[in-house]
Nucleic acid binder design. Structure first.
Lengths: 194, 194
DNA sequence: CGTTTGCTTGAATTCTGTCAAAGCAGGTGG
DNA sequence: CCACCTGCTTTGACAGAATTCAAGCAAACG
């Protein structure tokens, strides 16, 4: 059951996990299944649980006064889900995270993190590597929104993360890209004409 | 000379630096002064040096085919400068970083990082803490551009980082915020009318 | 079968970028 | 000391892009 997860971690780290470390992972991460529309986290809650998406799809978003969802992240197989800021600082989260389809995860709690994972060198290295990759992607997203047209960003997303387009409807993708669903639809229509 | 820098690091870490660690810092970080307009890094170069801004101002940016600068980061006193992606992966950087005014820094090289700093627990912790804070800020920037108007983002920047407006002219700030200098000027004019 | 969900399209409006021109310092060199 | 640059800001006119509001349609679902 943990095989793919262990293999994934080994792909990130510079040296493979020892048997001992694998045991630690198996005891620290518990299997959790989210039904469609089930919350992993709600705004105002402190994020006490984070984890790895084995299979499924979640969205992370805020809701403004008008009730509109603003998608900040889309999370699918082999991604991590959780609000790290809230988790680390023990502060209420600004985000909702919920399952857009039935989702299987390996999760760990703040207690397990504090007592076990945070002392493990392999886990510190993993966190550092993931954090760096995440930072690089976020920087690219900012740069892309500042320099590229809506159409270019859409095409780039289609190339980089085609799975998003299988899992999520267009209005979700549009919000993630910072545009309305109408704009996304029109971009598509214009591109098709050429 | 290193006092403020050591104090800064102690403010980040959970436990204060030992005398030994302070000595390591003093030998690993060297003082460097950049003249106005001097490059810390140019596009296409591998970033072999990164560091802490003691005093001064730098901008990190790309240049498009039309020759237009696109500012991705502004770096002033008590910030860190360098392209971590290039530094870590040993790949050519996509960015320029140059001093907008005379700038004093404490820098470390890739060699020093590999041989010394990367093995120091205190430095790993520091990197992790800084990386996390950086990530939180980047996420907020993305969310702000997707949900707030140009005027709101400008006002928020004025509140959060007033020093930017002392150090940099408006056309640099505008680029950082992803708008043209004309738009920024008009936002100001409209806001003043009310 | 009716309801929900997602997608498209149109028209009007607002916002932003582009291009061009002009003004306004501050600093430099003659 | 003055004239001239250079860097920065502002303004206007116009074009283009994106949002909003509204309506309609198709597919999926219970």
């Amino acid at each position: 059951m943990y095989d793919n997860f262990i293999a994934y971690i080994n792909r990130q780290l510079t040296k493979p996990l020892t048997e001992e470390e694998i045991e630690i992972i198996k005891s620290a991460f518990t299997y959790k299944k989210l039904r469609k529309h089930q919350y992993l986290l709600q705004e105002g809650e402190v994020c006490k649980m984070a984890g790895f998406v084995i299979k499924g799809a979640l969205k992370q978003y805020t809701i403004d006064k008008a009730g509109k969802e603003n998608i900040i992240a889309l999370l699918i197989d082999n991604w991590w889900a959780g609000d790290r800021e809230s988790f680390v600082k023990d502060e209420p989260s600004a985000f909702y995270i919920d399952a857009f389809e039935e989702t299987e995860m390996f999760v760990f709690t703040k207690n397990v993190y504090n007592e076990t994972l945070s002392h493990q060198p392999f886990f510190k290295e993993l966190l550092m590597i993931l954090s760096e990759k995440h930072t690089f992607r976020l920087l690219k997203r900012i740069h892309a929104t500042n320099t590229q047209t809506a159409e270019q960003r859409l095409m780039e997303l289609e190339n980089s993360y085609p799975a998003f387009f299988q899992k999520f409807p267009q209005h979700i993708i549009a919000s993630y890209l910072g545009m309305t669903k109408e704009t996304l639809s029109r971009i598509r229509a214009n591109a098709a004409k050429r």
